[in-house]
Amino acid sequence: MEREDVELVQCVCNGAHCKNDKTCVGELCTYVVNHKTKQFEQGCTNASVPLIERRAIGSCMAPPITGAMHHNVAKDAQSLLAVESCICGTDYCNSEKPSISVPENEKCSAYVEVTTMGTTTRSKNISCSGEYCFTVGFFFFLRLS
């Protein structure tokens, strides 16, 4: 398996996950905001799905496409639709919400669907605009021996 060394960055840390620390060190910095509650958090993350998250560096997305892209601002699939997550990869790049400099001309429909123990829960559809529309699916299998 090919190994890639990743440089760590210093980030602003603000939220329940920070405890008393005002900074953190990680592979990426995050700025996450729930537009319904106006709650926001800043912090660090290590890429849980490196290919997706590394390609998304310097962008914001709603809803977040992986679990590493949000902290405590959403409690369920429905509230996750109001969450916008920004990730960046330079020191203290999350001190403010990054501004998007790319035209966001695509109109997309968005929803979150979760299947747990055979039960599927799907949020209502909303529309959003962005540079691209995307679909992300994750499948996890657990084998007990």
Rank of each mutant, 00 (worst) to 15 (best):
T66V: 13
C24K: 03
L81W: 01
Y92T: 02
T37C: 00
T66Q: 11
L51G: 12
I87K: 05
G67L: 15
C13Y: 01
A68E: 14
L80N: 01
V49Q: 10
K75T: 10
A74W: 08
K38Y: 05
H70Y: 15
D76G: 02
G15M: 03
C18F: 01
C18D: 03
V73P: 07
S95K: 15
V73H: 06
F40I: 02
C60M: 09
V32S: 05
V49N: 11
A74D: 09
G58I: 08
H17Q: 09
K22A: 02
S48D: 14
V12F: 00
L28F: 15
A16M: 04
S99A: 12
N20S: 08
T37D: 01
F40S: 14
I100Q: 14
D91P: 00
V25N: 08
Y31L: 04
C24N: 02
S59K: 13
V33Y: 06
C44V: 10
Q42T: 12
F40W: 11
K97M: 09
E27K: 09
H70E: 11
T45N: 09
Q42Y: 00
V33L: 13
V73S: 02
K38A: 03
V83A: 02
K22S: 07
E84S: 03
M69L: 15
H17P: 00
K22T: 06
T30E: 08
N94H: 06
P64K: 12
E84V: 01
R55P: 04
G26C: 09
C44W: 06
S85K: 08
G15V: 03
V25H: 10
C44F: 11
P63K: 05
G58L: 10
T90I: 05
P64C: 09
C24Y: 05
K36G: 00
V12T: 10
T66W: 14
A74P: 07
R54I: 03
N72Y: 13
T66R: 11
H71K: 14
R54Y: 12
I100F: 03
V73W: 05
Q42I: 05
G67W: 15
H17F: 03
L81S: 01
A77F: 05
E27S: 10
T30S: 14
Q39I: 10
Y31Q: 05
C44K: 07
A47K: 14
N94V: 13
I87P: 02
S99C: 03
I57C: 10
A68S: 15
A62V: 07
A47T: 13
A77C: 04
A16Q: 07
Q10M: 07
P98K: 13
T23C: 01
I100A: 12
V73L: 06
P64Q: 11
E53T: 11
A82S: 14
V32I: 14
G89P: 02
E27H: 08
V49C: 04
E41P: 01
H70T: 12
I87R: 04
I65V: 15
M69T: 07
V102P: 04
N20P: 00
V102M: 10
S79M: 06
L80Q: 03
C24V: 05
L28T: 14
S48K: 10
I52N: 03
N20F: 06
I100N: 15
P64T: 10
P98V: 14
T66I: 13
T66M: 11
R54P: 00
A68N: 13
I52D: 01
A74E: 08
M61C: 06
C88T: 12
V49G: 00
T45C: 08
V25K: 12
T45L: 14
